[in-house]
Design a protein around this nucleic acid. Structure first.
Lengths: 217, 217, 217, 217
DNA sequence: TATGAATGAGCGTTCATTCAT
DNA sequence: AATGAATGAACGCTCATTCAT
């Protein structure tokens, strides 16, 4: 635990601060000061603040995709296609893997996804897509198989409703956990929250698309 | 239309920029320059950048709560309690009201809610709660009535899963719309997206909470 | 003399430091510290360090060109064309005008010309040409009239030999003056140096171009 | 030709970059990166960036002085003293020797001389004087013999007018060559420029010093 | 009511150099 | 002899805010 190398110290400090404050709000001075390394070390090791953010992203996404892939492989030996709940459970287990490495990992990861969907962030978006889209598409297609039958565009939006639930909850887990504790005198752990999501998200994906309401809005 | 007053010009410019870039990334210089007013005008009229953000918040939340309240009042004359889908439809109609005022209004509004859940943003959170909690609680309790039976904490988390879907989708509507157009050669309007959410969110709230999966994560 | 305004203080301090150290070597902190103004003042008043350099340039070049123009106008009433020595004397008198406003003005001005001829400084070069070429061309053409008959390219190079003499001497006047004082126990004033240049430059321009030496190099 | 040693690679890369950008604007990172050697190599082999600059200086000045010396020796067997044009031709031939070693050599060399005349560069100036003054003085005295009769201080300034012509033209040869090509659709080679200087500089040195103009400035 | 000028604090980045191996 | 890692100092610039009028 003593001295784990400048690069690793920077990444660790960055994870915590990014999770708490977001990327823009976190300064390189805060990171290097918390990591107890020289101010210039981020630029030396990662080229720029942006480079550090990408390094943090890869650190999480690579094992996550790998885990998801190996789970899917294992499951595919059976003759039946996995159910929606099974698939979401896989996803949650993969997220837990990231979570267990670092308390802040999931929050950073989710903030990164949020950031990627902002305007003027095409660079980050393209970076993530180019690196991980191939690995995630098979999983997404399996989800679609067990979801309610629907058009491509309907599925596109539902997938992002789901993504919104996950990113919002995990990005702000710290705050939500604190509120829950204050209101109900007990707080759920991340594992528990991930578990609670499964039936909710599953039901949302399996809900029948109803076009008759459209006129009434 | 010609000269709509310094304050209004500032708010209008701020809405667009906040929607596109978020609050931190938007500078007072960008706002005053776009509004074609003096750099000091924001501090003069709103005290600070934070004051401007709160003014924008009130501008959206006040009519939204009012609309939601009057809808509930109208509905309460009937002898039956409103269904979940009816309630969500009310919410979406109230959001549409905000949307119709300004193309960027909903995105700003949703970014504001996201911001309110961040660490170190207790001030904004408290401000919103003190001003609007009373008005929203009755609506939330009606939702709970038609949701699946569940503990307080379970309902707390599901409400935030729902909030995540809404904020993520509407904050990033601009980006998602662009992606949809590129992929499927047609893009859904905001009204349509709001409509699509209803069955999904409704199903999520009515899903039976299943504790047997817990151990498997 | 007391307080002459932030802009003017900055320009004055910049002139001295640019003259002594050149542009790159002079930092905005040195300038603002010497001018006793806030560090941000340069960016506020001139947009950037580069903007300050251009402001300094215009401050010198505009009156110089004006003076040169009015001298040429006055002279043109006579029926004869001005001699090379007369023209160089005009130039030197115009330079003296700049010099009298500020001890460092000529050195800065000359460093600026040197800078404009460097690679990767096309922006500055284009800026100067677009602003002042029209005003200098008539003067240059008068010089050509009384110079020895020669090809265009020969004249081009001789003009730059002349420019080199002037820029080098005036850029480094401070150093050269100090050396002269140390070696000969007396130092020439700028006025005197400008005067001494006239017969030398004049003779250079009137020297017969000799192509027979070419093979011997 | 393949691997020419770290030191030589550094010097070669430095020459090009110094010629193009000047000394301050050229960073050790640029040099080591272009030379494809370790970042620390400059400090290791030359002690500091300043040490590298001095090494480059010696590389040029030593053969130049030697050549000039041997030319003077050869010429001295004759019973007559060499003419100004002969002497300038010797100088140009010696410069060509430097030029032939490397396309950028003359530009670097001339930039170095310019640098040596700047304030705060006494160290470099003293270094050059201590090493090469003795070797150059005889040549300078020969020049004086065939120049117009004049006071010491007059000769001092004329020598620097001449130095200015040479340094300015050769430092910026790259730029001037490009301008000439654009304007006249043909560009002169360095050899040609050196040749063209001879009659101009010679005439300048032989011009009669005229003190009657003094009062008119 | 409004604004041009100015400010202190802080930003991400780059510099030549040094250190440990 | 050579190098990857690291460093302290400084860089130009931008931030939200305040002041004097």
């Amino acid at each position: 635990m003593r001295h784990k190398g400048t690069s690793a110290s920077i990444v660790e400090a960055a994870e915590t601060l990014f999770a708490e404050q977001g990327f823009t709000e976190t300064t390189v001075r805060q990171i290097t000061s918390r990591a107890d390394v020289n101010l210039a070390a981020i630029n030396y090791h990662f080229g720029s603040k942006k480079g550090l953010i990408q390094a943090v992203a890869e650190k999480f996404l690579t094992p996550l995709c790998a885990e998801l892939g190996s789970m899917m492989e294992q499951r595919q030996v059976a003759d039946s296609s996995p159910s929606l709940e099974e698939l979401l459970e896989m996803l949650m287990r993969a997220l837990l893997l990231v979570h267990r490495e670092n308390v802040n990992a999931l929050a950073v990861f989710m903030r990164l996804l949020e950031l990627a969907y902002m305007k003027n962030q095409e660079e980050l978006r393209d970076f993530l897509i180019s690196r991980y889209n191939d690995k995630l598409q098979p999983f997404i297609q399996l989800i679609r198989k067990d979801a309610a039958p629907m058009e491509d565009d309907e599925f596109f939006w539902r997938l992002h409703f789901l993504l919104g639930s996950i990113t919002f909850t995990l990005s702000n887990y710290h705050t939500l956990h604190a509120i829950e504790k204050r209101e109900f005198h007990s707080g759920a752990e991340v594992e528990n929250i991930l578990h609670r999501m499964i039936p909710v998200l599953s039901a949302g994906l399996q809900a029948r698309a109803d076009k008759t309401y459209f006129c009434r809005l």
